[in-house]
Design a protein around this nucleic acid. Structure first.
Length: 171
DNA sequence: AGCAAGATCGGT
DNA sequence: CCGATCTTGCTG
């Protein structure tokens, strides 16, 4: 189990997002180390992606998406759930992977609640952080692809593109 | 300065 | 299907 490096995250989001499935999200909660396998993720790719938070350009909320890969993009949705994303790409182009589920906690709002991830993680660097990072696993598991969830506001083709990656339950 | 909508979830 | 709950960013 090796901690993922900067190079892993600095690739295009369409390479990183599927590669994150099966990897282990590690959270050090005041000395208690929680480890969970990532089972669901989605890619958000650039200002031209009509579902991406950067579709209107750089704003205060999404500014961290323009960083080089490896840091966290955390935001509040519906006034009560924190969404945990990982920025990808070489920098300059806003990209991020939304972590939508881990083994014990399916659902993006549930996993942030269980792992105590909140606004204080905005911009946290997963390459150097001592409280959250990701480790590699033995082998790349089989995946299923579907369109992204909860982005009905987006137009075509963005609404229908299969940029949601799920661990294949059949292995 | 005001307001509508949101990358969700849990209970009817 | 609907309400909770509050930040964001668009519009005027």
């Amino acid at each position: 189990m090796k901690k993922l490096t900067r190079e892993f995250y600095c690739r295009d989001v369409l390479q990183v997002a599927p590669d994150l499935i099966g990897k282990v999200l590690v959270r050090n909660l005041n000395g208690q180390v929680l480890r969970h396998r990532i089972v669901e993720a989605e890619a958000y790719r650039g200002e031209e992606d009509d579902a991406c938070h950067a579709r209107f350009g750089k704003t205060n909320r999404n500014s961290v998406m323009y960083n080089a890969g490896g840091c966290a993009y955390v935001y509040l949705i519906y006034g009560m759930y924190w969404m945990f994303n990982i920025v990808t790409g070489p920098g300059g182009d806003p990209q991020a992977v939304l972590i939508r589920g881990v083994d014990a906690y399916p659902g993006p709002g549930k996993l942030t609640r269980a792992l105590a991830i909140d606004k204080s993680f905005y911009g946290e660097d997963l390459v150097t952080s001592g409280r959250i990072w990701i480790e590699s696993c033995a082998e790349q598991p089989a995946l299923l692809l579907t369109p992204r969830i909860g982005i009905g506001y987006a137009g075509e083709p963005w609404k229908s593109i299969a940029w949601r990656y799920i661990l294949d339950p059949r292995g």
